[in-house]
């Protein structure tokens, strides 16, 4: 009995993955119809990029600040020079935290908006209306959203990293643990350009994962308001899981 249920679930999962792949394939194919989605693309750039800057600013500042205070607390011995705090904070922010924490926050902000929008359009027959007019609804709705995700997330990641470092510096100086000069010296000592590239690749992948899952769930939503709610919940949960999974895979592959 239980194994039968499990088999059903696995079969459902595979079918769902197949549909997800199909939607992406359609999106890729229709990405050449630039004139269809040009307007929406700029709209999405603003929504995904510009309008996320305040929250990313906060995420960056606080992550950097807390990280600095806690690293100082953990390394509170005379064995290490205090500059090492700067090294740890800067490198952790660039490699991991700026990308992952912003991705998890954006899964809630950007992903949830996308799946709710598309889900509502689906259940109120707006997507059918687009298709019925002879529109390519995937090109019109899905392509600009995923494109905005993969193009804007790296920028947001960079913003988070920069403000994270500023937050760290400020926290260290205000708290009197670590003068600005020492933080900078430590940060510079272990600063590698390849780490930034790694972070950018991560954020690019996260942007894709979050927006594509959100669009998929929204595009195929069904069953009225409750259906849209379910789609959005599933999209947010799945995005978080797949962001963490992708984070792990990228670390294993690229580091």
């Amino acid at each position: 009995m239980i194994s039968a249920i499990r088999e059903l679930r696995i079969a459902g999962g595979i079918r769902e993955f197949g549909r997800y792949g199909q939607l992406l394939y359609q999106a890729l194919r229709s990405s050449t119809e630039f004139s269809t989605y040009r307007k929406n693309l700029f709209h999405e750039f603003v929504k995904v990029g510009y309008e996320s800057i305040p929250i990313i600013f906060l995420v960056g500042i606080f992550t950097g600040a807390v990280m600095t205070l806690q690293t100082a607390y953990q390394l509170d011995t005379d064995i290490y020079p205090s500059t090492i705090i700067g090294s740890i904070v800067v490198q952790s922010l660039i490699i991991e935290l700026a990308a992952v924490i912003s991705a998890l926050v954006l899964a809630g902000k950007v992903g949830a908006r996308m799946s709710t929008e598309l889900g509502t359009m689906r259940v109120s027959e707006q997507i059918d209306a687009l298709e019925a007019m002879g529109f390519n609804s995937v090109s019109f709705l899905v392509v600009p959203r995923i494109a905005a995700g993969i193009l804007m997330f790296p920028i947001l990641y960079t913003t988070a990293a920069v403000f994270g470092i500023l937050g760290g510096i400020t926290a260290g100086a205000v708290d009197g643990i670590l003068p600005v000069a020492e933080f900078m010296e430590g940060g510079r000592a272990f600063f590698f350009e390849s780490d930034i590239i790694f972070g950018i690749i991560k954020s690019f992948v996260f942007g894709f994962v979050i927006t594509s899952i959100a669009c998929y769930k929204g595009y195929y939503a069904f069953g009225g308001a409750e259906g849209v709610g379910n789609a959005t919940t599933r999209a947010t949960v799945l995005s978080c899981i797949f962001v963490l999974l992708a984070d792990f895979i990228l670390a294993a592959l690229l580091l």
Binding site: S124, E125, D128
Partner: peptide
């Protein structure tokens, strides 16, 4: 599909644009 017009059960208007733009929508794109 462009030879068909459909009136959907609930209207299926695009709610991000005005009434005028809803009607103008097919004209603008096609």
């Amino acid at each position: 599909r462009q030879r068909f017009g459909i009136l959907f059960q609930g209207g299926a208007l695009f709610d991000s644009i005005s009434t005028f733009e809803n009607v103008a929508f097919p004209l603008r794109y096609f």
